[in-house]
């Protein structure tokens, strides 16, 4: 049914797409590490050759009852439910910075347990619901 020309074009296209797919797969695979926007506390714990002088982003959840505010700084614990890192930060936090919600801190590690942030971003989840619904859930 298909003419010779059409068949030839389909073959060309197939070869083109296949090579393209392979190239991209390889590129993504090599770039995989740098595509990560932040590291979790577990990843930092497992990292053997950690560069403490380099600026990194640390992400996870703010541990419950861990936020301590004093005059000069705000301290809280970032956890991924396996490992924890204490973060110290001077400055204002976004509105959605709350306990048991996602957070990303930008800054440097002092050691594997302590992190000094110079910027804090809030990472919210994909759940959207009206406030009354939430109160019903709590009851």
């Amino acid at each position: 049914m298909l003419t010779f020309k059409v068949k030839r074009r389909i073959i060309y296209l197939g070869i083109f797409c296949f090579t393209l797919f392979l190239c991209f797969f390889y590129v993504i695979k090599t770039l995989n590490q740098s595509l990560l926007y932040f590291k979790t506390p577990s990843e930092i714990f497992d990292d053997q050759n950690l560069d403490l002088s380099k600026e990194i982003r640390l992400g996870g959840m703010v541990k419950k009852n861990s936020i301590k505010v004093n005059k000069r700084e705000i301290q809280f614990i970032i956890t991924d439910l396996k490992k924890e890192i204490l973060v110290s930060y001077k400055g204002t936090v976004p509105n959605l910075f709350l306990e048991e919600k996602g957070v990303i801190a930008e800054g440097k590690l002092k050691d594997k347990k302590f992190f000094i942030a110079n910027r804090v971003l809030a990472k919210h989840d994909e759940n959207y619901k009206p406030p009354s619904e939430n109160q019903l859930d709590k009851k």
């Binding site: 595509l35 926007y37 936090v93 976004p94 509105n95 959605l96 910075f97 910027r119 804090v120 971003l121 809030a122 990472k123 919210h124």
Partner: peptide
């Protein structure tokens, strides 16, 4: 207002 930044170079 939510994340605290206008732009981030995430994926």
């Amino acid at each position: 207002p939510t994340w605290g930044t206008w732009w981030a170079w995430d994926a």
